[in-house]
Design a protein around this nucleic acid. Sequence first.
DNA 1: CTCGGAATTT
DNA 2: AAATTCCGAG
Length: 195
Amino acid sequence: MYCNCFSEGILAAPVWPSDWAYEAESSPGSRQIQLWHFILELLQKEEFRHVIAWQQGEYGEFVIKDPDEVARLWGRRKCKPQMNYDKLSRALRYYYNKRILHKTKGKKFTYKFNFSKLMVANCPPWKVWAPPSPRLLLRSPALCQPLVPVAKQSEPLHSMLCTRATETQPAGERTPQRPPKASGDKESSGFNCEC
DNA sequence: CTCGGAATTT
DNA sequence: AAATTCCGAG
C-alpha cells in the first residue's frame, strides 16, 4: 500500500523540479556526480557489499567496511587519484549541515542518510530494482538513476518514504530480481572515469 | 577516528 | 555549490 514508489503515480510525475537526472552524466557543463549519489550507487549494488553496505537495523544507516577501497573508487570516478578516506570523509562531513547525512556516533565508519530531506524516486536501495516504467528510463545508461533531491528550493512536503521494506522479507510478492548479471560477468567493477 | 576551519579547485 | 587538500584539536 504505502510503497507505491514504483507505481506510475510517482514515477510518472509531470516534471522533476531540477532534472539533475538528465544532466547527471551527459551535459558537458553540468556538474559532476555528487558524493552521496555515488555512495548510493555503491550501496545499491551487491558487488560492493563487502566494501560498503546498509546497516541492518536502522535504515538509511550504512557502514563503510573498506574505507580505502571506497575512497579509491570515488577517486577513480572523479579522476582524483589522490583521494583517500580522510578527504572523502571531509566531504561527507559537509553533508551534516546540508542535512543529507549525519554520523552514527560510536560506530566507526558508520553514517546515516537523512531521508527526510531526500526523496526516493527510483530504484530505492531496499528494493534494489524497480521494474518497468520505460518512459522514465530517459537515457540513463545501464540502470535507472537512483534518487532525486526533493528540496531544491521549495519543499513540497514529501517526507514520506517507502517505510521500512528492508529485511521484512516479504517472500511471496516481489521476487528478488537479479537483473543483468549472468554471462560475461566482467565484474566491471562499476565505473570508470571518462576523463 | 572524528570534527570542522580555511584556502583552493572544479 | 560541491569537493579537494591540508591540518590542528579532541
